[in-house]
Design a binder for these strands. Structure first.
Length: 441
DNA sequence: GCATGATCATGC
DNA sequence: GCATGATCATGC
Protein backbone atom coordinates (compact mmCIF):
# COMPACT_ATOMS: atom_id res chain seq x y z
CA UNK A 1 0.00 0.00 0.00
CA UNK A 2 1.19 3.48 -0.81
CA UNK A 3 1.55 5.87 2.09
CA UNK A 4 1.74 9.63 1.57
CA UNK A 5 5.43 10.18 1.09
CA UNK A 6 6.60 13.41 -0.43
CA UNK A 7 8.25 16.70 0.43
CA UNK A 8 5.32 19.04 0.82
CA UNK A 9 7.41 22.07 -0.02
CA UNK A 10 8.63 20.67 -3.32
CA UNK A 11 6.54 20.66 -6.47
CA UNK A 12 8.87 18.11 -8.02
CA UNK A 13 8.54 15.78 -5.10
CA UNK A 14 4.75 16.04 -5.08
CA UNK A 15 4.60 15.45 -8.82
CA UNK A 16 6.86 12.44 -8.50
CA UNK A 17 4.63 10.97 -5.85
CA UNK A 18 1.54 11.72 -7.95
CA UNK A 19 3.05 9.83 -10.85
CA UNK A 20 2.99 6.65 -8.83
CA UNK A 21 -0.73 6.61 -9.53
CA UNK A 22 -0.28 6.47 -13.27
CA UNK A 23 -1.73 3.32 -14.74
CA UNK A 24 -3.45 2.39 -11.53
CA UNK A 25 -6.66 3.03 -9.63
CA UNK A 26 -7.21 4.05 -6.03
CA UNK A 27 -8.32 0.51 -5.26
CA UNK A 28 -4.90 -0.69 -6.37
CA UNK A 29 -2.83 1.69 -4.30
CA UNK A 30 -4.80 2.22 -1.12
CA UNK A 31 -5.55 0.08 1.87
CA UNK A 32 -8.85 -1.61 1.13
CA UNK A 33 -10.20 -0.93 4.62
CA UNK A 34 -9.56 2.79 4.18
CA UNK A 35 -11.50 2.78 0.97
CA UNK A 36 -14.35 0.76 2.36
CA UNK A 37 -14.82 3.41 5.00
CA UNK A 38 -14.91 6.13 2.42
CA UNK A 39 -16.85 4.87 -0.54
CA UNK A 40 -20.03 6.25 0.92
CA UNK A 41 -19.31 9.80 -0.05
CA UNK A 42 -21.00 9.48 -3.38
CA UNK A 43 -17.85 8.68 -5.27
CA UNK A 44 -16.06 11.93 -5.13
CA UNK A 45 -12.83 10.76 -6.63
CA UNK A 46 -11.12 14.09 -6.21
CA UNK A 47 -11.77 14.12 -2.48
CA UNK A 48 -10.48 10.59 -2.06
CA UNK A 49 -7.30 11.45 -3.94
CA UNK A 50 -6.81 14.46 -1.73
CA UNK A 51 -7.54 12.81 1.60
CA UNK A 52 -6.50 9.23 1.16
CA UNK A 53 -3.71 9.35 -1.35
CA UNK A 54 -2.07 12.65 -0.49
CA UNK A 55 -3.20 12.74 3.13
CA UNK A 56 -4.43 16.30 2.84
CA UNK A 57 -7.39 17.61 4.81
CA UNK A 58 -10.47 18.59 2.87
CA UNK A 59 -11.08 22.20 3.54
CA UNK A 60 -12.18 25.31 1.78
CA UNK A 61 -9.12 27.37 2.41
CA UNK A 62 -8.15 30.07 0.01
CA UNK A 63 -4.62 28.76 -0.14
CA UNK A 64 -3.55 26.06 -2.55
CA UNK A 65 -3.97 22.51 -1.26
CA UNK A 66 -0.21 22.05 -1.04
CA UNK A 67 0.26 25.41 0.64
CA UNK A 68 4.01 25.21 1.11
CA UNK A 69 4.61 24.40 -2.51
CA UNK A 70 1.95 26.81 -3.74
CA UNK A 71 0.33 23.97 -5.65
CA UNK A 72 -3.38 23.33 -6.09
CA UNK A 73 -4.58 19.75 -6.52
CA UNK A 74 -7.18 18.93 -9.17
CA UNK A 75 -8.48 15.60 -10.40
CA UNK A 76 -10.40 15.45 -13.64
CA UNK A 77 -11.98 12.89 -15.91
CA UNK A 78 -10.98 12.07 -19.46
CA UNK A 79 -12.75 10.09 -22.12
CA UNK A 80 -11.35 8.19 -25.02
CA UNK A 81 -12.28 9.35 -28.49
CA UNK A 82 -12.90 6.91 -31.30
CA UNK A 83 -9.41 7.55 -32.66
CA UNK A 84 -7.89 6.53 -29.34
CA UNK A 85 -6.95 10.01 -28.19
CA UNK A 86 -8.20 11.44 -24.94
CA UNK A 87 -10.33 14.46 -24.34
CA UNK A 88 -11.50 16.21 -21.19
CA UNK A 89 -14.86 14.98 -19.99
CA UNK A 90 -15.79 18.40 -18.70
CA UNK A 91 -14.59 21.82 -17.72
CA UNK A 92 -12.08 22.11 -14.90
CA UNK A 93 -13.59 24.05 -12.03
CA UNK A 94 -10.93 26.13 -10.32
CA UNK A 95 -12.41 28.18 -7.50
CA UNK A 96 -15.61 29.96 -6.62
CA UNK A 97 -16.07 33.52 -7.72
CA UNK A 98 -16.43 35.64 -4.64
CA UNK A 99 -18.56 38.51 -5.89
CA UNK A 100 -18.03 40.53 -2.74
CA UNK A 101 -14.27 40.53 -2.83
CA UNK A 102 -13.39 40.36 -6.52
CA UNK A 103 -14.41 43.97 -7.06
CA UNK A 104 -11.53 45.04 -4.81
CA UNK A 105 -8.99 42.71 -6.40
CA UNK A 106 -6.47 43.23 -9.12
CA UNK A 107 -5.17 40.31 -11.18
CA UNK A 108 -1.87 39.99 -9.37
CA UNK A 109 -3.56 39.89 -5.99
CA UNK A 110 -6.58 37.88 -7.05
CA UNK A 111 -7.91 34.87 -5.18
CA UNK A 112 -7.81 32.92 -8.39
CA UNK A 113 -4.13 33.53 -8.89
CA UNK A 114 -3.16 32.94 -5.29
CA UNK A 115 -4.94 29.58 -5.31
CA UNK A 116 -4.44 28.34 -8.84
CA UNK A 117 -1.18 29.74 -10.14
CA UNK A 118 0.21 26.21 -10.14
CA UNK A 119 -2.12 23.27 -10.57
CA UNK A 120 -1.29 19.61 -10.17
CA UNK A 121 -3.68 17.92 -12.55
CA UNK A 122 -4.46 14.21 -12.31
CA UNK A 123 -6.37 12.52 -15.11
CA UNK A 124 -8.56 9.49 -14.62
CA UNK A 125 -10.41 7.58 -17.28
CA UNK A 126 -14.11 8.16 -16.88
CA UNK A 127 -16.19 5.12 -17.64
CA UNK A 128 -19.70 5.24 -16.37
CA UNK A 129 -19.95 1.62 -15.43
CA UNK A 130 -16.62 1.53 -13.61
CA UNK A 131 -16.83 2.39 -9.91
CA UNK A 132 -14.98 5.43 -8.69
CA UNK A 133 -12.25 3.58 -6.85
CA UNK A 134 -11.53 1.44 -9.88
CA UNK A 135 -11.11 4.27 -12.34
CA UNK A 136 -7.56 4.32 -13.56
CA UNK A 137 -5.22 7.27 -13.85
CA UNK A 138 -4.37 6.58 -17.44
CA UNK A 139 -2.17 9.57 -18.14
CA UNK A 140 0.75 11.05 -16.27
CA UNK A 141 -0.23 13.99 -14.08
CA UNK A 142 1.00 17.43 -15.07
CA UNK A 143 1.79 20.63 -13.30
CA UNK A 144 -0.02 23.42 -15.04
CA UNK A 145 1.39 26.90 -14.69
CA UNK A 146 -1.15 29.62 -15.34
CA UNK A 147 1.75 31.75 -16.52
CA UNK A 148 1.93 30.09 -19.89
CA UNK A 149 1.52 31.43 -23.39
CA UNK A 150 -2.21 31.70 -22.87
CA UNK A 151 -1.89 34.01 -19.88
CA UNK A 152 -2.90 37.15 -21.80
CA UNK A 153 -6.19 35.57 -22.73
CA UNK A 154 -6.77 34.09 -19.29
CA UNK A 155 -6.02 37.39 -17.65
CA UNK A 156 -8.29 39.27 -20.03
CA UNK A 157 -11.04 36.77 -19.27
CA UNK A 158 -10.59 37.35 -15.55
CA UNK A 159 -10.71 41.12 -16.02
CA UNK A 160 -13.89 40.81 -18.05
CA UNK A 161 -15.62 38.74 -15.39
CA UNK A 162 -14.51 41.10 -12.65
CA UNK A 163 -15.69 44.11 -14.61
CA UNK A 164 -19.14 42.65 -14.96
CA UNK A 165 -19.37 42.24 -11.19
CA UNK A 166 -18.07 45.77 -10.73
CA UNK A 167 -20.91 46.96 -12.93
CA UNK A 168 -23.43 45.15 -10.77
CA UNK A 169 -24.07 42.50 -13.41
CA UNK A 170 -22.96 39.35 -11.63
CA UNK A 171 -26.38 37.86 -12.38
CA UNK A 172 -25.76 38.40 -16.09
CA UNK A 173 -22.49 36.46 -16.21
CA UNK A 174 -22.23 33.80 -18.87
CA UNK A 175 -19.60 31.30 -19.91
CA UNK A 176 -19.85 32.83 -23.35
CA UNK A 177 -18.44 36.10 -22.06
CA UNK A 178 -14.92 34.78 -22.19
CA UNK A 179 -12.54 32.43 -23.95
CA UNK A 180 -10.41 30.04 -21.88
CA UNK A 181 -11.41 31.02 -18.36
CA UNK A 182 -15.14 30.77 -17.95
CA UNK A 183 -17.58 31.76 -15.25
CA UNK A 184 -19.37 28.45 -15.07
CA UNK A 185 -22.46 27.69 -13.06
CA UNK A 186 -21.88 26.03 -9.77
CA UNK A 187 -24.33 25.00 -7.15
CA UNK A 188 -27.64 23.26 -6.90
CA UNK A 189 -29.55 25.05 -9.61
CA UNK A 190 -33.28 24.69 -9.90
CA UNK A 191 -35.99 26.98 -8.59
CA UNK A 192 -35.03 26.62 -4.93
CA UNK A 193 -31.48 27.78 -5.30
CA UNK A 194 -30.44 30.54 -2.96
CA UNK A 195 -29.00 33.45 -4.86
CA UNK A 196 -25.84 35.23 -3.76
CA UNK A 197 -25.48 38.86 -2.92
CA UNK A 198 -23.36 41.00 -5.17
CA UNK A 199 -21.80 44.28 -4.07
CA UNK A 200 -22.98 46.72 -6.73
CA UNK A 201 -26.52 45.61 -7.30
CA UNK A 202 -29.50 44.54 -5.26
CA UNK A 203 -30.17 41.70 -7.69
CA UNK A 204 -29.15 38.26 -6.44
CA UNK A 205 -26.81 36.28 -8.65
CA UNK A 206 -26.37 32.57 -9.14
CA UNK A 207 -23.23 31.09 -7.77
CA UNK A 208 -20.48 30.73 -10.34
CA UNK A 209 -16.91 29.50 -10.38
CA UNK A 210 -13.85 30.17 -12.47
CA UNK A 211 -13.14 27.24 -14.71
CA UNK A 212 -11.02 26.26 -17.65
CA UNK A 213 -13.32 25.44 -20.51
CA UNK A 214 -13.61 21.84 -21.58
CA UNK A 215 -11.88 22.26 -24.90
CA UNK A 216 -9.09 24.19 -23.26
CA UNK A 217 -8.51 21.32 -20.86
CA UNK A 218 -8.48 18.95 -23.81
CA UNK A 219 -5.73 21.00 -25.38
CA UNK A 220 -3.73 20.95 -22.18
CA UNK A 221 -4.23 17.22 -22.21
CA UNK A 222 -2.89 16.97 -25.70
CA UNK A 223 0.16 18.86 -24.51
CA UNK A 224 -0.42 21.46 -27.14
CA UNK A 225 -0.74 24.59 -25.09
CA UNK A 226 2.58 24.24 -23.35
CA UNK A 227 4.77 26.16 -25.70
CA UNK A 228 3.20 25.35 -29.02
CA UNK A 229 2.77 28.33 -31.29
CA UNK A 230 -0.74 29.65 -31.27
CA UNK A 231 -2.87 31.93 -33.32
CA UNK A 232 -1.99 35.05 -31.37
CA UNK A 233 1.10 36.71 -32.66
CA UNK A 234 1.20 39.42 -30.04
CA UNK A 235 0.10 39.61 -26.44
CA UNK A 236 -1.49 42.94 -27.26
CA UNK A 237 -3.69 41.38 -29.86
CA UNK A 238 -7.19 40.50 -28.82
CA UNK A 239 -8.77 37.20 -29.53
CA UNK A 240 -11.14 38.87 -31.96
CA UNK A 241 -8.34 40.55 -33.84
CA UNK A 242 -6.46 37.31 -34.21
CA UNK A 243 -9.44 35.58 -35.75
CA UNK A 244 -10.31 38.51 -37.93
CA UNK A 245 -6.82 38.34 -39.38
CA UNK A 246 -7.44 34.80 -40.52
CA UNK A 247 -10.58 35.84 -42.32
CA UNK A 248 -9.36 39.21 -43.53
CA UNK A 249 -7.85 38.01 -46.83
CA UNK A 250 -11.19 36.49 -47.85
CA UNK A 251 -13.67 39.15 -46.80
CA UNK A 252 -15.56 40.41 -49.84
CA UNK A 253 -14.46 37.55 -52.07
CA UNK A 254 -17.03 35.29 -53.61
CA UNK A 255 -17.52 31.85 -52.18
CA UNK A 256 -16.47 30.41 -55.54
CA UNK A 257 -13.19 32.32 -55.45
CA UNK A 258 -12.42 31.24 -51.91
CA UNK A 259 -13.38 27.66 -52.65
CA UNK A 260 -11.03 27.59 -55.63
CA UNK A 261 -8.24 29.19 -53.66
CA UNK A 262 -8.51 26.71 -50.80
CA UNK A 263 -9.16 23.79 -53.13
CA UNK A 264 -12.51 23.01 -51.59
CA UNK A 265 -13.71 19.86 -53.29
CA UNK A 266 -16.40 20.27 -55.92
CA UNK A 267 -18.58 17.70 -54.28
CA UNK A 268 -18.43 19.29 -50.82
CA UNK A 269 -19.43 22.64 -52.26
CA UNK A 270 -22.86 21.16 -52.86
CA UNK A 271 -23.34 20.18 -49.23
CA UNK A 272 -25.81 21.99 -47.03
CA UNK A 273 -23.00 22.68 -44.66
CA UNK A 274 -20.60 23.95 -47.35
CA UNK A 275 -20.45 27.43 -45.82
CA UNK A 276 -19.56 25.89 -42.52
CA UNK A 277 -16.85 23.67 -43.97
CA UNK A 278 -15.38 26.59 -45.86
CA UNK A 279 -15.25 28.73 -42.71
CA UNK A 280 -13.46 25.92 -40.93
CA UNK A 281 -10.95 25.64 -43.74
CA UNK A 282 -10.17 29.33 -43.45
CA UNK A 283 -9.68 29.04 -39.71
CA UNK A 284 -7.46 26.01 -39.71
CA UNK A 285 -5.57 26.81 -42.88
CA UNK A 286 -1.81 26.77 -42.68
CA UNK A 287 -1.55 23.51 -40.82
CA UNK A 288 -1.16 22.97 -37.14
CA UNK A 289 -4.87 22.42 -36.96
CA UNK A 290 -4.96 23.65 -33.42
CA UNK A 291 -6.22 27.11 -32.91
CA UNK A 292 -7.48 29.29 -30.13
CA UNK A 293 -10.99 28.96 -31.36
CA UNK A 294 -11.09 25.30 -30.53
CA UNK A 295 -9.49 25.83 -27.16
CA UNK A 296 -12.06 28.44 -26.26
CA UNK A 297 -15.04 26.19 -26.94
CA UNK A 298 -16.34 28.71 -29.38
CA UNK A 299 -19.34 27.83 -31.42
CA UNK A 300 -18.75 28.40 -35.09
CA UNK A 301 -21.97 29.24 -36.89
CA UNK A 302 -22.63 30.51 -40.37
CA UNK A 303 -25.36 32.91 -41.34
CA UNK A 304 -26.56 33.22 -44.90
CA UNK A 305 -28.05 36.57 -45.87
CA UNK A 306 -30.18 37.27 -48.85
CA UNK A 307 -30.67 40.65 -50.43
CA UNK A 308 -31.81 43.21 -47.94
CA UNK A 309 -29.49 41.62 -45.40
CA UNK A 310 -32.14 39.29 -44.13
CA UNK A 311 -31.04 35.88 -42.89
CA UNK A 312 -32.23 33.08 -45.09
CA UNK A 313 -32.93 30.69 -42.25
CA UNK A 314 -33.39 30.20 -38.56
CA UNK A 315 -30.48 28.62 -36.75
CA UNK A 316 -30.64 25.05 -35.52
CA UNK A 317 -29.06 23.43 -32.50
CA UNK A 318 -28.52 19.83 -31.48
CA UNK A 319 -31.61 17.73 -31.13
CA UNK A 320 -33.22 16.71 -27.87
CA UNK A 321 -34.89 13.49 -26.87
CA UNK A 322 -38.50 13.63 -25.72
CA UNK A 323 -37.95 11.11 -22.97
CA UNK A 324 -34.92 12.95 -21.62
CA UNK A 325 -36.02 16.56 -21.63
CA UNK A 326 -38.95 15.85 -19.32
CA UNK A 327 -36.53 14.81 -16.56
CA UNK A 328 -33.90 17.41 -17.26
CA UNK A 329 -33.14 20.73 -15.60
CA UNK A 330 -32.50 23.79 -17.72
CA UNK A 331 -28.92 24.15 -16.59
CA UNK A 332 -28.16 20.55 -17.49
CA UNK A 333 -29.58 20.90 -20.98
CA UNK A 334 -27.48 21.24 -24.08
CA UNK A 335 -29.53 24.24 -25.18
CA UNK A 336 -28.52 26.02 -21.95
CA UNK A 337 -24.89 25.29 -22.77
CA UNK A 338 -25.33 26.83 -26.17
CA UNK A 339 -26.96 29.95 -24.82
CA UNK A 340 -23.92 30.46 -22.61
CA UNK A 341 -21.47 29.90 -25.44
CA UNK A 342 -19.47 32.44 -27.28
CA UNK A 343 -20.30 32.33 -30.96
CA UNK A 344 -18.25 33.16 -33.96
CA UNK A 345 -20.62 34.10 -36.73
CA UNK A 346 -19.30 33.81 -40.25
CA UNK A 347 -21.67 35.77 -42.41
CA UNK A 348 -22.19 35.18 -46.12
CA UNK A 349 -24.34 37.39 -48.28
CA UNK A 350 -25.87 36.87 -51.66
CA UNK A 351 -26.19 39.96 -53.85
CA UNK A 352 -28.93 40.84 -56.33
CA UNK A 353 -27.35 38.62 -58.95
CA UNK A 354 -27.24 35.70 -56.58
CA UNK A 355 -23.48 35.83 -56.13
CA UNK A 356 -22.52 34.75 -52.62
CA UNK A 357 -19.66 36.49 -50.83
CA UNK A 358 -18.01 36.23 -47.45
CA UNK A 359 -19.39 39.37 -45.84
CA UNK A 360 -17.89 39.50 -42.37
CA UNK A 361 -17.15 37.68 -39.15
CA UNK A 362 -18.17 38.65 -35.64
CA UNK A 363 -18.20 37.34 -32.13
CA UNK A 364 -21.39 37.32 -30.17
CA UNK A 365 -22.93 35.87 -27.07
CA UNK A 366 -26.49 35.92 -25.96
CA UNK A 367 -27.58 38.84 -23.80
CA UNK A 368 -28.98 38.05 -20.41
CA UNK A 369 -32.59 38.95 -21.17
CA UNK A 370 -32.60 36.67 -24.21
CA UNK A 371 -31.10 33.83 -22.24
CA UNK A 372 -34.03 34.15 -19.87
CA UNK A 373 -36.37 34.00 -22.85
CA UNK A 374 -34.57 30.94 -24.23
CA UNK A 375 -35.01 29.34 -20.85
CA UNK A 376 -38.70 30.13 -20.90
CA UNK A 377 -39.10 28.43 -24.28
CA UNK A 378 -37.14 25.43 -23.04
CA UNK A 379 -39.25 25.13 -19.88
CA UNK A 380 -42.40 25.47 -21.96
CA UNK A 381 -41.15 22.74 -24.27
CA UNK A 382 -40.37 20.46 -21.35
CA UNK A 383 -43.86 21.02 -19.98
CA UNK A 384 -45.58 20.40 -23.27
CA UNK A 385 -43.57 17.32 -24.18
CA UNK A 386 -44.92 15.71 -21.04
CA UNK A 387 -48.49 16.47 -22.10
CA UNK A 388 -48.45 16.29 -25.89
CA UNK A 389 -45.09 16.06 -27.66
CA UNK A 390 -46.70 16.91 -30.98
CA UNK A 391 -47.54 20.44 -29.86
CA UNK A 392 -44.37 22.42 -29.10
CA UNK A 393 -43.48 26.13 -29.12
CA UNK A 394 -43.78 27.59 -32.60
CA UNK A 395 -41.91 30.51 -34.01
CA UNK A 396 -44.66 32.98 -33.23
CA UNK A 397 -44.59 32.17 -29.53
CA UNK A 398 -41.26 33.79 -28.76
CA UNK A 399 -39.09 36.41 -30.37
CA UNK A 400 -35.97 34.34 -29.59
CA UNK A 401 -36.46 30.62 -30.09
CA UNK A 402 -38.77 27.88 -31.29
CA UNK A 403 -38.87 24.13 -31.75
CA UNK A 404 -38.84 22.41 -35.10
CA UNK A 405 -37.89 19.18 -36.81
CA UNK A 406 -34.32 18.11 -37.30
CA UNK A 407 -34.13 14.58 -38.60
CA UNK A 408 -32.85 12.42 -41.40
CA UNK A 409 -36.33 12.24 -42.87
CA UNK A 410 -39.94 11.83 -41.88
CA UNK A 411 -39.26 8.36 -40.51
CA UNK A 412 -36.46 9.46 -38.21
CA UNK A 413 -38.44 9.44 -34.99
CA UNK A 414 -38.16 9.24 -31.23
CA UNK A 415 -40.46 7.77 -28.64
CA UNK A 416 -42.49 10.29 -26.62
CA UNK A 417 -43.89 10.16 -23.08
CA UNK A 418 -47.28 9.53 -24.70
CA UNK A 419 -45.89 6.31 -26.12
CA UNK A 420 -46.08 7.26 -29.77
CA UNK A 421 -43.30 8.18 -32.17
CA UNK A 422 -42.64 11.73 -33.25
CA UNK A 423 -40.09 13.01 -35.72
CA UNK A 424 -36.89 14.27 -34.04
CA UNK A 425 -36.75 17.92 -33.15
CA UNK A 426 -34.40 20.58 -31.87
CA UNK A 427 -34.36 24.16 -30.68
CA UNK A 428 -33.91 26.93 -33.22
CA UNK A 429 -33.11 30.58 -32.87
CA UNK A 430 -35.71 32.51 -34.82
CA UNK A 431 -34.79 33.98 -38.13
CA UNK A 432 -35.99 37.39 -37.05
CA UNK A 433 -33.87 37.11 -33.93
CA UNK A 434 -30.82 36.28 -36.05
CA UNK A 435 -31.70 39.33 -38.13
CA UNK A 436 -31.55 41.53 -35.04
CA UNK A 437 -28.17 40.06 -34.11
CA UNK A 438 -26.81 40.72 -37.58
CA UNK A 439 -28.01 44.30 -37.35
CA UNK A 440 -26.18 44.75 -34.06
CA UNK A 441 -22.77 43.34 -34.93
C1' DG B 1 -42.47 36.00 -47.73
C1' DC B 2 -43.02 33.31 -43.90
C1' DA B 3 -43.89 29.15 -41.09
C1' DT B 4 -43.36 24.63 -41.07
C1' DG B 5 -42.00 20.23 -42.40
C1' DA B 6 -38.44 17.62 -44.61
C1' DT B 7 -33.96 16.40 -45.87
C1' DC B 8 -28.68 16.04 -46.96
C1' DA B 9 -23.47 15.74 -46.60
C1' DT B 10 -20.11 15.28 -43.17
C1' DG B 11 -17.46 13.54 -39.51
C1' DC B 12 -16.73 10.70 -35.81
C1' DG C 1 -25.05 4.44 -37.38
C1' DC C 2 -26.05 8.66 -35.84
C1' DA C 3 -25.66 13.43 -34.39
C1' DT C 4 -24.66 17.80 -36.33
C1' DG C 5 -24.65 21.98 -39.15
C1' DA C 6 -27.35 23.57 -42.35
C1' DT C 7 -30.50 24.32 -46.33
C1' DC C 8 -34.37 22.83 -49.31
C1' DA C 9 -39.39 22.39 -50.35
C1' DT C 10 -44.11 23.20 -49.76
C1' DG C 11 -48.30 25.47 -48.75
C1' DC C 12 -50.69 29.31 -47.25
Amino acid sequence: MVQPNYDESSVDSILKFAKRLTGRSLAQVLDSSTIAANTRNRGDLGNMVQELYFGLPRDNKREPDFAMAGLELKTTGVERKSNGEYRAKERLVLTNIDYESIVDEDWEGSQLLSKCRLILLLWYLYEQQVSVIDRRFVIDPVVLNIFNQDLPIIRRDWEFIRQKVVEGKAHELSEGDTYYLGACRKGSGGPDEKLRRQPHSATGAKSRAFSFKQKYVSEILAGLTLGAPGLLTSTHQTFEEATSMRFAPFIGKTVDQISDELEFSKRSRQSKSANFSLAKMILTRGGGGINELVKADIELKTIGLKKGWKPKESMSFPGFKYMEIINEEWEDSSFFEKTERKFLFVIYRSDEKGVKRLEKVAYWNMPYADRLEAKRVWEETKKRVAVDASDLPKIGESHVAHVRTKAQNGEDKEITPQGDLQVKKCFWLNRSYIASIVASI
